[in-house]
Amino acid sequence: MDNNTQPTVETLETKPMKITITLPTNAYFISGIRDFTLGLIKNMTEFSEQWAFRFQSVVDELCNNAIEHGSAPGNDVKITFINVPHESIEIIVEDTGTGKVKFSATELQKLVSDRRQPNYVHTGIRGRGLSKIVAEWTDELEFKDLETGGMQVRIKKFLQDPKLKEMSNYLESPTHLVLQ
């Protein structure tokens, strides 16, 4: 059989899986989302149980921020999970921008960046969620102002550390070591 004519088989194992959930703006519903996240990561992705618990916290923190700052009572928060098999998980949380204390994407990015500085001391009860939990446990964290007036927070975690991947390219070729 000619190898070139073999059909490409796209199975569930290779196809990205996307799930979107819309929640009313109420902290009461967040425990359900935490349970869902834990089950999803454990059963539908290749991430370990430790990461399932970590994503549970990441989603919880993002949803709480969206409820507190982004969406007024009676509005919604939208959560999207995109799992790319053998590659990554992406989680997107969107609010409506109707919350009491509104931040722009640039302001939030700066806030997180400031709080991630090694000499930053957290003194209050709040303020650790994005900078100490979400940012620490993800490879990408992006904030985007939506045309609707809301905010989109997108996180991505690769199954393999992308930095390790870069390193392994050098390691595969022991005659080309790059000293930095």
Binding site: I125, R126, G129, I133
Partner: peptide
């Protein structure tokens, strides 16, 4: 079973 960032804030306080 679970603690969020605010409960960690309280623990620190």
């Amino acid at each position: 079973e679970y603690m969020n960032s605010k409960s960690i804030g309280y623990l620190t306080d």
